[in-house]
Amino acid sequence: MADHSHRMGAITRKTAVLAFGFVLLAALPGIAHLMDEPFLVSTFSRVLIYAMAAVSLDLILGYGGMVSFGHAAFFGVGAYVVGILAHHAAEGTTVLGLAGTNLAVVSWAAAVLVSAGVAAVIGALSLRTDGVHFIMITLAFAQMLFFLFVSLEPYGGDDGLMMMGRNDLFGIDLSDDMTFYYLCFIALMAFLLLTRRLVDSRFGMVIRGCKQNERRMRALGFPVYRYKLTAFVIAGAGAGLAGALSANHTEFVSPDFLHWTMSGDIMIIVILGGIGTLYGPVVGAVVFLMLEEFLPLAFDSVGLEGLKEHWRFLFGPILILVVLFARRGLFGLLAGREARDG
């Protein structure tokens, strides 16, 4: 019966949750100003950026069953492309014979293309294996890129690279936090729409089939490797765009963007929100970053100052409990049985 009413277009629990979430995020700058906490706008820009990275990971993790533990690599590469191009634009120098640029259209496109390219190389090698090999190899390749950027002294090495302000997007003033927030909002919604359509398409069905039974998909005649690699590249490109936005958000890039704990954080966001749901990672990003922001303050205000700096001391065990006992994630709790389609 539930399924029937769903098809009739009746308001289900899932659509209600989604609509509520959409309105909440769309109205957030207004809410923040009403609450007289304008810094929340910038904090939530970060939430949306992380959500985008997490959604891109969910595409391969939740739907393709590819446990990539190096997703921060693509995020970081996207950020560095923007940072490096801006650096050369400021210095008036060239990189690989190309002039630097501050134009968002150019440098964000470059970020997406380069991270897609990196994902193609890493994916092509890593997808030769599966299971625990795949986890370790993606982690190791991400670590390789981390060390590469640490050793790139011309671009700040360990210390990272400052940007002289945000990119120029058709003359729109991105330095305004509210404008930047809505840019991130539009980007995330567009990416969600794209991944939603992708997951529901024939391509998405093949990817999901690979997760359930790769051998069967192969027997059916699908070039499994090519499908998985394509998904991996799309996910890398999405993370790259999130990285480009993140570089603009902080006006700074550093090897920390590619650190393996970043890969871990993105993965936690996916699991916390609900794997194989696409929308779950958005919920996960909100909750994860709010915990990061407010848990230390909460410890402080109840007199547990000792834990203020060490909020992860509690977060670690929470994560273990979520993994052991709450497989559906937060979106699963909110939206009920129909949340997951991965």
Binding site: F69, I135, I271, I275, H310, G316, P317, L319, V323
Partner: peptide, 28 residues
């Protein structure tokens, strides 16, 4: 011992949680 029958993703995440826990414990 609760993880032996779980998939690798669960193992990675739960042991990642352990890392967070131990790092902060040692730091404290």
């Amino acid at each position: 011992r609760r993880l032996y029958d779980r998939d690798h993703l669960d193992q990675v995440l739960a042991t990642f949680g352990l890392i967070l826990f131990f790092n902060e414990l040692i730091a404290m």
